[in-house]
Design a protein around this nucleic acid. Structure first.
Length: 660
DNA sequence: TAGCCTCGAGTTCA
DNA sequence: CTCGAGGCTA
């Protein structure tokens, strides 16, 4: 056998290890050197180049449009089940059609990839044709582009039958998609709305070089025409496809429809853990003879159904853009949306962050937009659907004055935010007070957002100190404040006077000073009066305090009004010094993070427990972490911790550790 | 000075 | 949760 053939075999093998099994045996460098060796040999005698050679993945640009390709067997789509009931209906309908009365029907459940459907045809072992689904009958010839997808084998190890037609989905992994969009953003190019569009756009490129650069993956799930009759089940087919060198997704064989439902729910919960987008599951009757008996409708088979996850993406219209003024005076534009249901909640508003964001995405009032709720909860506007623009949309301009107090708003150099600098701005006052009374600061229960707003509007309070001069008469002038609730509120205010100093310092809302720095500050300056004399040198010696934070502290404590408010609070009996703490704790200096649902502790209790014992709690995992406490259904932190070799403990272990 | 880590700040709905 | 930026470290 020639050296060229050996090299090709070797490269195919290592390509498969790398791109299909994700388990390379040799380094990238070694692969490249084998590849270059083959390239040299082929260049010496180009007549030896075969179409399945690894050097032929990226072909020449096709100038004309894609050629049409007729599918020998129609590529169908799937009917949808929008909920669990529709899955059960599907099951009973099939059983009726098959005359199955008192027995169960076996199904295969696979994740449904949100990508681009393709077919790859192999003749005598060699990849000869790649096509899109098109309308199901006729697709487009994308052979050259599919060849660039490294997880698709160019030749197969052994022939079971020929031709072999495999069907699957080309996807772009989420990470890849984000990187691509980031790059396009830097180049000022139009962004892709989601990984599916991105995969579709990449596969329909006339220049295979572009497709090759997109790092697409392909997963296969079925066959086209099948001359071979040895397959009995869908499971056989998946196993065969996989053994022939294709990537397949995980799948599960289910005894009955209830197990199918369980599996669908499981995958739905895990959807964010997949590297690629999945928008549902595909449920197929496992037995091929039963599939045949059921047959197909005009556009979809009767033996399969797609179970759709509750969507995390939706289209809606921007009714208006309004402005919010936060506690730091930042003026934030917020889109008011036509209410739309995404993953079970009605979304009406979405932040637009700042004017740069609006201009970058070219968002206008009246635009139709795609909004998204990923693993998190916060809706995000992904992009404007430009194709439905009527021309009646209104561009949004930042006003010159604060929408609340009408004073001039300014944009600090190099910042995208506009700020209202009026310290008497009612909105700023309200937000500052809400922050002061919030759970993590002074924790005054019963003083919620609505009440604070009323109090400021009615001029009952104008700064923190006024909270401590409230009387039952004043509170009762407000809506929905009776004897009982007013008394409760006064009690809560009274007990807040004893809060730790660090909570007070945090509650003051000094720029750049959050919970952590408040704590470090309080450890050094144990009495509020000492803060006034703090100098920059001393401050910057404290961990995490640099130039900006130090300046911010000094400027806060040299402001007369601030000092006046503090002194008023002191007169009202608010504790202004730190209690001496009793020595070293059990967990002194140990860093903890939590993930998943805890059952023995609430998050707050777990946090307080650690901190009472001198430990530190953090919200993200890094190599400095000492313990990750994992509850039920841990999130991404779990994987990161595993990778970094962080000690992961369960709740029971944690309980032992804190000796409760 | 670059790159990593952490902290702060803003954010939606039930 | 996520982003941006301040601060720390090599």
């Amino acid at each position: 056998m020639s050296e060229i053939d050996d090299l090709k075999k070797l490269l195919h093998y290592h390509n498969h290890r790398y791109y299909v099994l994700d388990d390379p045996e040799i380094s990238d460098g070694e692969y490249d050197s084998l590849f270059n060796k083959l390239l040299t040999l082929e260049q010496r005698d180009p007549s030896l180049i075969t179409p399945d050679s690894p050097t032929q993945r990226v072909g020449a640009k096709t100038s004309e449009k894609f050629k049409k390709v007729e599918h020998r067997k129609r590529m169908l789509s799937l009917s949808n089940a929008m909920n669990v009931d529709e899955l059960r209906q599907f099951d009973s309908r099939i059983k009726k059609d098959l005359n199955i009365i008192d027995s169960d029907l076996e199904y295969i459940v696979e994740p449904k990839l949100d990508g681009f459907s393709v077919e790859a045809v192999y003749e005598n072992n060699v990849f000869v044709l790649g096509s899109t689904r098109g309308d199901g009958n006729v697709g487009e010839d994308i052979t050259n582009n599919l060849k660039t997808v490294r997880s698709i084998p160019l030749s197969l190890p052994n022939i079971l039958f020929t031709p072999l037609e495999v069907r699957g989905e080309v996807v772009m992994e989420k990470k890849e998609f984000e990187e691509l969009n980031l790059m396009r953003e830097n180049l000022g190019e139009q962004l892709f709305a989601n990984p599916r569009n991105s995969a579709a756009g990449s596969i329909r490129q006339l220049d295979p070089k572009i497709t090759a650069s997109r790092k697409l993956k392909a997963y296969f799930y079925g066959l086209g025409i099948t001359v071979n009759k040895s397959f009995k089940t869908q499971e056989d087919i998946l196993t065969y496809i996989n053994n022939s060198g294709f990537k397949i997704t995980e799948f599960k064989k289910c005894r009955d429809i209830e197990e199918v439902i369980k599996e669908c729910k499981r995958l739905e919960n895990l959807r964010n853990d997949f590297m690629f987008e999945i928008d549902g599951t595909v449920v197929k009757v496992n037995d091929l003879s039963k599939q045949n008996a059921l047959g197909e409708r005009s556009r979809s088979p009767r033996w399969a159904i797609a179970y759709k996850f509750t969507p995390q993406e939706a289209t809606t219209r921007i009714v208006n853009i309004v402005l919010q003024v936060g506690r730091t005076g930042v003026v934030t534009p917020v889109a008011v949306l036509e209410p739309v249901n995404i993953s079970g909640v009605e979304v009406r508003r979405a932040t637009l962050h700042n004017i740069d964001e609006i201009l970058k995405k070219d968002i206008r009032i009246g635009d139709t937009v795609i909004i998204h709720r990923a693993g998190d909860v916060i809706p995000k506007i992904i992009k404007v659907v430009l194709s439905i623009r009527t021309g009646d949309e209104k561009q949004f301009k930042m006003p010159k004055n604060c929408p609340v107090c009408d004073s001039k708003i300014v944009r600090v150099e190099d910042e995208s935010a506009y700020r209202c600098l009026n310290i008497r701005c009612p909105s700023v006052i309200k937000e500052k007070i809400k922050h002061f009374v919030s759970r993590r600061a002074m924790n005054i229960e019963g003083l919620g957002d609505k009440l604070v707003e009323q109090m400021v509007d009615n001029k009952i309070i104008k700064d923190f100190s006024d909270i401590y001069t409230l009387t039952i008469e004043k509170i009762k002038t407000l809506e929905r404040s009776g004897d009982k609730s007013s008394a409760n509120l006064l009690n809560a205010i009274k007990s807040s006077k004893e809060q730790d100093l660090q909570r007070l310092v945090y509650g003051l809302g000094i720029r750049h000073i959050g919970e952590t720095i408040s704590k470090s500050l309080v450890n050094v300056y144990k009495d509020i009066s000492l803060f006034e004399n703090a100098n920059k040198d001393d401050l910057t010696k404290i961990k995490d305090i640099g130039n900006e934070a130090a300046d911010s502290i000094i400027s806060f404590f040299s402001n007369k009004q601030n000092l006046e408010v503090i002194s008023q609070m002191q007169k009202a009996g608010v504790k202004m010094c730190m209690e001496t703490t009793g020595g070293e704790g059990l967990l002194q200096g140990k860093r903890f993070a939590f993930t998943g649902t805890l059952s023995l502790f609430s998050r707050v209790l777990a946090r307080d427990t650690v901190e009472d014992l001198g430990g530190i709690t953090v919200s993200s995992v890094s190599k400095n972490l000492d313990f990750l406490v994992a509850g039920d259904q841990p999130g991404s932190k779990f994987k990161i911790a595993e990778k970094l070799g962080i000690k992961i403990i369960n709740e029971d272990k944690f309980k032992e550790l804190v000796q409760l």
